[in-house]
Nucleic acid binder design. Structure first.
Length: 397
DNA sequence: ATGTCC
C-alpha cells in the first residue's frame, strides 16, 4: 500500500528522500493536478525516475527526460525452450552479431519504416537529425538497456528488449530544454510548457516522433531476432513506453490531463506491461486493474526493479582517460558471476554497475503494487545481452 | 539516458 506525503502518492520502501524532494518540487507548478512515485523510484535529472506528474493543459520535457520513448517490448515465440548451455552461447553470439549495442553504435542493417515519414523532418531542429536516426534505428544503446531471452512458466521462449530513442530523442530533449530555458542541475525546477506556449506543439510533435522511433526500433529488434536467430513465429506481444507523456482521461483529476511518466509503466485496466528485472532475476508481464488505488496511482506502475546503489558505488571510479581504476566499487566480478551462475543466466556484455546486487529484487518491489496490478507471466532469464565487452567467458564462468 | 565535451 502507498503512503501519501504532501499530496504525492508514494510507493516503496525505503523511500528515497532525494527523489521525494524532487517530485515535491515538480508538484509546486500551478498546472500540476497530481503526483505519484513508484516503488522503483530513485533520484533523476529534475524529475525522479519512477515519478508520474499530471498536468492540466501543460507538459514537461524534464518529466519525460532525455530518453524520450524509452520502453519495453516482449514477444512470445512459437517455440518451447530446449536449449542446452552450448546452444544458448551460440544464440547469444548470433544476437551479438545481429544487434548493435552501445552509445553511438549504428545498425549494420539499414532499416526504416513508413510510420517515421511525415512533416516532422521539416522542423528546423529535426532536419539535421534524420541521418543519425536512420543509422541508429534498431540499435540498443548503453546503460541499463538490454536484449533478454526468457522462458515463461509454460516453457515458451520470449524475447524482451529495453531501449529508447537513442541519439534522436536525446538531441530532441536537449534542444527543447535549451530553447525553453530550463534551469540546470539535478534538483532544478522542471521545465513546463503550457498550452499556447510557442514550444508546446513543437515539443509534443517531436516527442511523438521519438516515441514512434523507439517503438519501430524495438519492433525491428524483436522481429529480427525472432526471424533471423530463432526462425520462429511471434504469438504474442506486450509493449509500452515508460518515459513519455499522454493526454489521458482521469475523471477524479479533472478529466483530460497530460500524464508525464518518467520510468513508470502505464497500467490501465487490462493493459499489459513488460517489467524487466535486473539481469539476474525473473521479469514479469503484468496487467493493470480498475480500483480506487489504481486511479490514485494514475494507472501507473514500476518500470523495473530500481537501483539500490549508484553506478559509481557499484563499479567504483575509473580514470576516464587511462581507464585505470581509482576506487573500488562495492560489487566484485566474482560476486556477480556467482549470482548469474546460481541462476544459470548467460551474460554477454554488461558491467558491474548493472549487476543484480546493484538492484532491488523485482518480486519484492512488485508487492508494493499488488493491489493495482496482476501478474500474467513470469519470465526467467536465459540469455542477457548488454553494451560493453564481455565480462565473463561463458565457457568457464 | 547521450556519436559520454563544441
Amino acid at each position: 500500500m502507498p503512503t501519501k506525503i504532501q499530496n504525492t502518492v508514494v510507493y516503496g520502501d525505503p523511500i528515497d528522500q532525494a527523489a521525494l524532494k524532487q517530485i515535491h518540487t515538480a508538484a509546486q507548478h500551478e498546472r500540476v493536478v497530481h503526483t505519484v512515485l513508484m516503488a522503483d523510484h530513485h533520484k533523476g535529472y529534475g524529475v525522479p525516475i519512477g515519478g508520474v506528474v499530471a498536468y492540466r493543459e501543460a507538459i514537461s520535457p524534464t518529466g519525460v527526460g532525455y530518453d524520450i520513448g524509452c520502453g519495453n517490448m516482449a514477444v512470445k515465440l512459437d517455440l518451447r525452450n530446449t536449449m542446452t548451455r552450448e546452444e544458448r552461447i551460440q544464440i547469444g553470439r548470433q544476437i551479438q552479431s545481429l544487434i548493435s549495442f552501445g552509445v553511438g553504435e549504428k545498425n549494420l542493417q539499414r532499416v526504416w519504416d513508413d510510420r517515421l515519414e511525415g512533416d516532422w523532418w521539416q522542423m528546423p531542429h529535426l532536419k539535421g537529425l534524420r541521418r543519425t536516426a536512420e543509422e541508429q534505428l534498431g540499435t540498443v544503446g548503453g546503460g541499463n538497456h538490454y536484449v533478454d531471452i526468457f522462458e515463461d512458466e509454460d516453457g515458451y521462449v520470449w524475447i524482451g528488449v529495453h531501449f529508447g530513442s537513442r541519439g534522436l530523442g536525446h538531441q530532441i530533449a536537449t534542444h527543447f530544454l535549451k530553447e525553453g530555458g530550463a534551469a540546470k542541475g539535478m534538483d532544478a525546477e522542471p521545465l513546463v510548457f503550457e498550452e499556447g506556449h510557442p514550444l508546446f506543439n513543437p515539443y509534443l510533435e517531436s516527442m511523438k516522433l521519438a516515441g514512434v522511433y523507439a517503438t519501430v526500433g524495438r519492433e525491428w529488434a524483436c522481429h529480427a531476432i525472432a526471424e533471423q536467430v530463432f526462425a520462429a513465429e511471434i504469438l504474442d506481444r506486450v509493449h509500452n513506453h515508460h518515459n513519455y507523456a499522454w493526454l489521458e482521461e482521469h475523471p477524479r483529476f479533472g478529466g483530460e490531463i497530460y500524464v508525464v511518466r518518467k520510468g513508470a509503466t502505464p497500467a490501465f485496466d487490462g493493459q499489459r506491461g513488460f517489467i524487466g528485472a535486473s539481469m539476474g532475476d525473473d521479469s514479469y508481464i503484468v496487467a493493470g486493474v480498475a480500483n480506487d488505488e489504481a486511479a490514485e496511482a494514475l494507472y501507473s506502475t514500476v518500470h523495473g526493479a530500481g537501483r539500490v546503489m549508484s553506478r559509481t558505488a557499484a563499479r567504483g571510479k575509473y580514470d576516464r582517460r587511462t581507464g585505470r581504476q581509482l576506487q573500488r566499487g562495492q560489487i566484485s566480478e566474482r560476486a556477480m558471476a556467482d549470482w548469474l551462475k546460481e541462476r544459470d543466466v548467460l551474460l554477454f556484455g554488461g558491467d558491474l554497475d548493472e549487476a543484480p546486487q546493484a538492484y532491488k529484487r523485482l518480486d519484492e518491489v512488485l508487492v508494493h503494487h499488488q493491489n493495482t496490478i496482476v501478474i500474467k507471466h513470469v519470465l526467467k532469464p536465459l540469455i542477457v545481452l548488454m553494451a560493453g565487452k564481455d565480462v565473463f567467458d561463458p565457457y568457464k564462468d
